[in-house]
Nucleic acid binder design. Sequence first.
RNA 1: GGCCGUGUAGCUCAGUGGGAGAGCCCCAGUCUUACACACUGGUUGUCGUAGGUUCAAAUCCUACCGCGGUCACCA
Length: 882
Amino acid sequence: MKAVELEKTYNPAAFEDRIYKQWVEDGNFRPADGNGTPFTVVMPPPNVTGILHMGHALNNSLQDIIVRYQRMTGRPTLWVPGTDHAGIATQNVVERQLAREGLRRQDLGREKFLERTWQVKEHHHSIITEQLRKIGASCDWEHERFTLDEGLSKAVREVFVTLYERGLVYRGMYLVNYCPHCGTALADDEVEHQEDAGHLWEVNYPFADGSGNITVATTRPETMFGDVAVAVNPDDERYKAIVGKMVKLPLTDREIPIIADSFVGIEFGTGMVKITPAHDPNDWECGKRHNLTPINILNPDGTLNDVCPQQFRGLPAEEARFKVADELKAQGYLKGVKDYNHEVGHCYRCHTTVEPYMSEQWFVKMKPLAEKALKAWRDGEIRFYPRRWENTYSSWLENIRDWCISRQLWWGHRIPVWYCGDCGEMIVSRTDVTVCPKCGKSHLHQDPDVLDTWFSSWLWPFSTLGWPQQTADLERFFPTSTLVTGYDIIFFWVSRMIMAALEFTGKVPFHDIYITGLVRDKLGRKMSKSLGNGIDPLTVVENYGADAMKFTLCYLAAQGQDVLIDMDSFKMGSRFANKIWNATRFILMNLEGRNLVEVKPENMTDMDKWIFHSMNECARKVSTSLESYRFNDGAQAVYDFFWNDFCDWYVEAAKVSLYSDDDAEKDRIVSLLLQLLETSMRIMHPFLSFLTEEIYSRLPNTEGKVICAKFPGYREDLVFTEQAALVGTMQEIVRGVRNAKVQLGIDAARKLRITVRPESEQLKSFLEDHSKLLSTFLNAESLIIDATASSDVTSAFPVAGQGYESFVFVRDAIDVDKEIKRLEDELVKTRALLAGSEKKLSNPQFMEHAKPEAIEKEQSKKAEFEEKIQKAMSHIETLKSF
RNA sequence: GGCCGUGUAGCUCAGUGGGAGAGCCCCAGUCUUACACACUGGUUGUCGUAGGUUCAAAUCCUACCGCGGUCACCA
């Protein structure tokens, strides 16, 4: 056979791009034909606001691993990629760009602004897709979608109109969360509460009849111009008498009533609350209960409007706060002020303080949708990994609130509602409307607002497959199989997808939900731009290769755990990839002049059987790990098998054959090595995709690509438990001798005479069969296997183990005193263990309750300790006689 | 404040009822004709604290402490 050499060093950059291109050209990411149960994953669409970070790399690496694994089991597999238009976020990016040019979006106008936003989208989209290619994502690009593309826009309109028809979408004037910076309403979930340092001002409101005053406490004095009442608790004895009286609102001419409402805490502050329905959610509810008309005091940009006194108009709320306080003080209304920390809502996109703001918005009535989603979960149709996220899911759904879906933005799905300028008719329509169906006139204007981004992404699992049309894809690939995503969007996205799918397709959108951890730095901090602790996935790929990145992330992705990494973490995967490369290189180097032969089980040594057994177990572990989303277990299984078993023992053992003069044996071992290598590549392909593909193409015993190859199933005929145990014992013997030599301070290179005394016939014949191998591993000058060898051989150092004893002839090269000391230390330890064991066995409770196996084990342990003590004592004697 | 998670070797973490593990780090030795991104051997632990259940607890239960997350309208 011709030798096919591998380049001397593992250099992923030399082949990763080429291989990816080839996969795409050959259509390897397309779902296979055939009628196996399809496996489908939809990629959580990254926002087109930026480029992929480490979190995306983790997420997509894990998806890639299960997708490749499932593809190799023969299921038609589809991984749908795509991107999200990310309304607020993308619009913010473009507005920031404009600001640098001294422009506002209004200067461009809606159309020009959108053109520009599309350019930004295209730019980021091309970077993102390039990144996904670089990391090796085996998604089907022919199925790529964008949340704002034509098909998905149709789906959005269909859903909006249908929900409207079902009475689940409504419009109304409500107090919503409003971000003055983004200029739009936000959903409740889009508000992040964080504690801010503020003040609690105590303000005197005089009675209208001049009979003194009351004191209210507030964190926001500037909203007083919107006050419509002052509330006290009806059970508050202090204030019972004044309920119904009028007070004069300072700095204004208005008078407002004192009302009683049980939401007021008697203990807090002064027990009196100013009621400002237009600017506080509690007050809004309170105002409704008491039929009070809200007074809005803010402009949409967060500045005080014309309702307020002249001097405060146009000031931002926060600035006005202190000005109002100053004025109150100047006029003698301010009783006191305290520092006070309290929770304040912030925009999740720009972190500006959110204002409760009264405006007309569109909402989705969520309760009916949530009930279906809860039922599907209770019926076991969906399952979270790890399970605990199900609590998060269910408690959110149980306490769900209506969803504000209109956004005062330009970038997004325009709300499909038109208003007639002549007759005032409102038309909700799946298609564009140009003529009013009521009055026949054409003075129509479409609602200027767009829909919340999540209103398109909640349809992702079915809209990407063609819904609302009943396409072949939808028929075949929906419901999808698994969703892989982060816990930060369980509410935003996961729950809503389940609700939408149930409402519109009657099915759950996916069955398994794997929730990944967050990627953090080694100090446990989130990676962020502001901290500058982020790691760019592309830099990792450049430094270590995509396989090293994927393998490392997988190895660290324990279910339910965050992944803490720094750049050096990826050395782990890199070293492993390098090891695989070099092992392959070694095997390929030994092909020159060899013939491949078929090695039947009867021609296999116990060593051969052991490695096949181990590989078989490895394949099984990978299968069970990946099917239960225990990614780290899978990665560890291939790492341990390939490095510890295959390289460290089997390939080392094979050298005995390779360096012999026996051509038949050489052919045999090379054939086995290639066979093992071929199967290993298939087992490892999901984790190290580029490397295994490259190696697969170089092996003389392969056809086609590993990406399309069959994942090795578990084979009963490769179970060799006895052989595995024998090899295990041999490894122990070897380690024992090596260890003894080091402890005795003997140079590893020094060859010594060694005798091994096996205690069973089976072990004896195994060792005899592998005596040359054992001798090599032991680096022995000579090796004798003798079942009758005795422990009192003068000048031999004994090493005992389960079922055997080794004697190392060390007299010439040891420090006797040091060794005696070591043995005596060991004696102390062993005696302690024996004492523990004896205590257990003499405990009647233990003897009565413990499982028979446990007792048996304890007894054999005790015997072992006793034997060990005997031996140690006799060794000490032996050494003392030297 | 509620709920959830977490606390195991110097670091990052596996392990979840029967003799404490991996990788990195560290120490000693080895450039042994695939790999120094390697090989060989070694050190390191009141398994957060205190109780409890059990013949047996890192593992199950309770409380507490630390850290993290998440939800919550207290002006």
